[in-house]
Design a protein around this nucleic acid. Structure first.
Length: 256
DNA sequence: ATGGTGGCCCGGCCA
């Protein structure tokens, strides 16, 4: 099973790159974030033509998440169940080939003194409580998406640059660890040394200068983690014509 | 040097 997460920064703008990438890399389950589409504009038929079922949760200009699967897609749940908890369309879950998969887009937080920083911490706490409510120990679970948190100093190009900034603060990292404490592992780390990134700012030639962060994560339950055979960032997808500012992150799992 | 780029959709927000 090839499991992928990719923040596409507008699926409308990125659809040619996404379909090209699917054809070349054959994901079984693809979690997208920042589709920036309402449900009515999501191109279900395009993915169906490629052999995939899809679920989408989006309401227009901002956010929007999708779950795309060729292993089946059942028991779809959009959001956390209350608009106050959701803070936009940022989570969609479904069961794909026996795995409960969540595509998530954690609020950015903007800065430590911004009201959205508290919203980000609350959202991560709600993500944990949602897992407690909807998944049982022993379930096969994956939570994949743009967490807007770099788990460790090795996940940013220069820790000194980020002192006092969002994405690296201890409360965010603690909130992420509380999600993992449900029973999930950042399995990418099994196969990659520090210094591998998934996002680079469009500005200032950051990608070509290597100024990135690893904020796109695939957190999987232990039964899945032990089946992992590899994990990588496809940096090629960050190059070329009209790239997203994020690259796809891939985890491969052997059959059980 | 408090900028820069890109996406939404056309002025300003968001990342």
């Amino acid at each position: 099973m090839r499991l992928v997460t990719w923040n596409v920064n507008s699926l409308t703008a990125r659809l040619p790159r996404v379909t090209e990438w699917i054809a070349a890399h054959q994901p079984d389950v693809l979690c997208l974030q920042e589709t920036k589409q309402a449900d009515g504009r999501f191109p279900f038929e395009v993915f169906a033509g490629l052999g995939y079922e899809a679920a989408h949760h989006g309401d227009g200009r901002w956010n929007g998440v999708a779950l795309i699967s060729r292993l089946g897609l059942v028991d779809v749940v959009r959001g956390f169940g209350s608009p106050e908890d959701d803070h936009g369309t940022r989570c969609v879950a479904g069961t794909c080939g026996g795995v409960r998969v969540h595509s998530v887009y954690v609020p950015n937080g903007r800065s430590l003194d911004n009201e959205f920083y508290g919203i980000k911490l609350a959202w991560l706490a709600r993500l944990r409580s949602m897992l407690d409510e909807t998944c049982a120990p022993g379930d096969s679970v994956a939570v994949c998406g743009d967490f807007n948190v770099a788990p460790d100093d090795g996940d940013v190009w220069d820790p000194a640059h980020f002192v006092g900034m969002t994405h690296v603060s201890e409360p965010e990292r603690q909130a992420l660890r509380q999600v993992e404490a449900w029973g999930l592992e950042d399995v990418f780390r099994r196969f990659n040394d520090p210094g591998v990134f998934s996002w680079w700012d469009y500005r200032g030639g950051d990608f070509h200068q290597g100024r990135g962060m690893r904020i796109d994560l695939l957190l999987v339950s232990e039964d899945l983690a032990v089946r992992a055979t590899g994990a990588f960032v496809d940096r090629e997808a960050r190059k070329g014509e009209k790239p997203s500012d994020h690259a796809p992150v891939v985890v491969d799992l052997a059959n059980p």
